[in-house]
Amino acid sequence: MHTDFEQALQQARLGDDVVLYSEARDEAAVACLHMVLPATFRLDVISRDLEPAIFDNEDFYQAVKQLAMRSPKSKVRILIQNSEHIVKHGHRLVELSQRLSSHIDIHLQGRDFREFNEAWLIVDDRGWAKLPRTDSFKGEFHFNAPREVRERSKEFNTMWDVSIEDPNLRRLYL
């Protein structure tokens, strides 16, 4: 990870007028975690297949778990395009969503959005992140962008409204 990026990230807080740009996988992963840690009530995620390099590690798992358990009104919604990889190999967030199903939902994107090839994080009413291509870790992280968060939230809600539950991600009770 570049030292300049790491130093800037350590000084950035949700609500600060800071925009950071990642160039590498480690930078994107740390920036996503840094944005989610202070979340108090909401996290919306769009990701092709919950990229393990960013979303399937113990620190991110713990941050999402803390958010989900913080309040009865806390909500985490995740939209993915493909569940094959995470069903086959497992994923911490899928397991967490099965345990905390009243706070964490994972849906498949609807047919109209199957070609959407960006990854997003929307954190509370303040921050959002975008990786413009899911096969690249170049991204932008906005720590205080309430207007853009409202716009992205409307887009996310439109996608969520036509999304579908994936039976492969449900917990099996035997």
Rank of each mutant, 00 (worst) to 15 (best):
I86T: 01
F141L: 05
A68G: 05
A63P: 02
I46A: 05
V36M: 12
Q66Y: 09
I122N: 07
F116W: 10
V18R: 09
H2S: 13
N57P: 02
D26V: 01
A24Y: 12
D4R: 11
S136K: 14
W160M: 09
F143N: 02
Q98W: 00
P167I: 13
F143Y: 06
A68E: 12
D112E: 10
V123M: 01
M35Q: 07
R147N: 15
S97N: 07
R114M: 08
L174E: 11
D44M: 13
R48I: 13
Q10E: 12
D49H: 10
V18P: 03
A39N: 09
E115L: 03
R13W: 14
W160K: 02
M159S: 06
R150C: 11
L50G: 10
V123N: 00
Q11G: 03
E23R: 13
P72N: 13
I80D: 04
D44H: 12
L37C: 13
T134Y: 15
G139M: 05
F5V: 05
R114H: 08
F113K: 07
G15Q: 04
F60R: 07
T134H: 15
D135H: 06
H85T: 12
K138E: 15
M69L: 14
Y61F: 11
G110H: 04
Q11K: 10
Y61E: 09
K130E: 15
S74A: 13
A31L: 04
I54S: 09
R48F: 15
L33R: 08
P167S: 14
R77G: 01
H34Q: 04
R111D: 05
L67H: 01
F60Y: 04
R171M: 12
Y173A: 11
D59Y: 06
I86N: 05
L93K: 08
D161H: 12
I122S: 08
D56K: 10
W120N: 12
E148L: 13
A63I: 05
R133W: 07
L79G: 06
I80R: 06
G15E: 03
E151G: 13
M35R: 01
E95C: 07
Q7H: 05
R147G: 15
S136I: 06
R48C: 12
F41A: 15
W120F: 14
